[in-house]
Nucleic acid binder design. Sequence first.
DNA 1: AGCAGACAAGACGGCGCGTCTCGTCCGGGT
DNA 2: ACCCGGACGAGACGCGCCGTCTTGTCTGCT
Lengths: 197, 197
Amino acid sequence: MTQRRTPDSARRSLRSRDAILAATRELIAELGYAKLTIEAIAARAGVGKQTIYRWWPSKGAVVFDSLLALSEDEQGIELPDTGDLEADLKLVLRATAEEFSDPAFEAPIRALNIELIGDPELTAQYREKMEAPVRAAKLRRLRSAQDAGQLPADTDLDLLLDMLYSPFTQRWLTRSGPLTTDYVDSLVERTLRAFRP
Amino acid sequence: MTQRRTPDSARRSLRSRDAILAATRELIAELGYAKLTIEAIAARAGVGKQTIYRWWPSKGAVVFDSLLALSEDEQGIELPDTGDLEADLKLVLRATAEEFSDPAFEAPIRALNIELIGDPELTAQYREKMEAPVRAAKLRRLRSAQDAGQLPADTDLDLLLDMLYSPFTQRWLTRSGPLTTDYVDSLVERTLRAFRP
DNA sequence: AGCAGACAAGACGGCGCGTCTCGTCCGGGT
DNA sequence: ACCCGGACGAGACGCGCCGTCTTGTCTGCT
C-alpha cells in the first residue's frame, strides 16, 4: 500500500510554481473566473497539467494560492493610530473602498469568494493565512482605543469588527450600492456609537 | 432575419416547467450545486434538454427560478409588531437563524449566492423578485417604530437594515461562527443603540 | 555517478456542454 | 372537425475540458 502521494517538496520547481500562479492571475483578469480552466493555466505557464495536479487538489486551491502569493509580501500590517479611532477607521475604510473599486481587483476577489462559499476547508485556510494578520492588526488598533478610554474595556471586539466590515463587504459583493465616502463614514460613526461608553 | 427566439409562451407546458424546477431543487439538495448538471435535471424531470434551453438562458437562471417558485406562495409578508422594536427584531432574527441552520436550506441558498456573486443581471432579478417584498416588510416595521418614537424620524433605515442583516448573512455565508441566540440578540441590541434617539 | 522523481508534452476515455435532428403530440385558428 | 405550426421527449453530435496515464528528458539529492 505505498501511497504515491505526498510528492517530494524539496525537488519542487519554484520556476513552475511561480509561472502557474502568475498565469492563473492573468487568466482570471482576462477571462473571468467562470471561464478559467486548468488546461489554459498549464498552457499559459508553459507547464504540464500533471504539475498542477501534483501540487494542488483543486482549481480553487490554485486560485487561492495565486492570490495568497500577492499578499505574502504585505507583512507586518499596521493600522494608523493617531489617537482618534473614528478618524483612523474612516481613513482605513475609505482606502479599502478605493481598492475594491479597482476593476483589476474585482474579478479575482469575486472568484475567491465564490470558491470560499462552496468550500469550508478552503475557507479555513483563507481565515488562517489571509484574514488572520489583517484581523489581528484591526484588533490591535481597537485595543489601543480601549486603553485610551475610547471604547469600554469589556467591548466585544469581534462583534464590533463584524458590524463594521460585514455591511461593507456585503454591499460590494451583492452590488447593492457604491462604497462612497459618505457610506463608509456613516458606517464608522454608527458602529462606534453602538459601542461608545 | 427572422429571429427564431422568443418561443410562444402560450403553448408552454406547465407540467414540464414544474418538473424541471422540482428536479433542480432535488438535485441541488442531493449533489450540491457544484455537481448540478443540465443533463441530470432533464433526465430527472423526464424532459428533453432542449426544453430547458428553450426557456432558460443559463443554469443560474434555472436555479434561481427553482428557488423563486418556493417563495412565491409567501405573499403578504408582515413582521411582528408588538410595539417593542427590539423584542420584535430579536424574534425575527432568531427565527431566521433557525431557518438558516436547516441543512436542507443550506445547499440551495449557497448555490443561489454563488450564482448572484458572479451574475449582476441575476442579482437585479433577485433584488426585485425575492428580496424586495421582504425588505419592504422590514421597512414598514421600522417606520412603525419611527411613528412610535423608538427611532428618530430622520433615521437612514437602509443603513440600519444593512447593519442589522449584513453581519448575520456574512457570518452564515463565510461560516465564521454559529448564529446563536446570543449573537443575534447582541446584534439587534448594538444596532438599535447605534440609531437610538 | 547513479537514481529517484519532478518535469513538459501530449494522448486518452469520459462527461457535460449547447445545438441539432428526429418523430410525436398538442392546442389555437379557420 | 380539421390543420399546421410549434413545443415536446429522446437522443445523436462535435466540442472542450476534465483528470489520469505514458513517454522521454532533465534535475537535484545521495
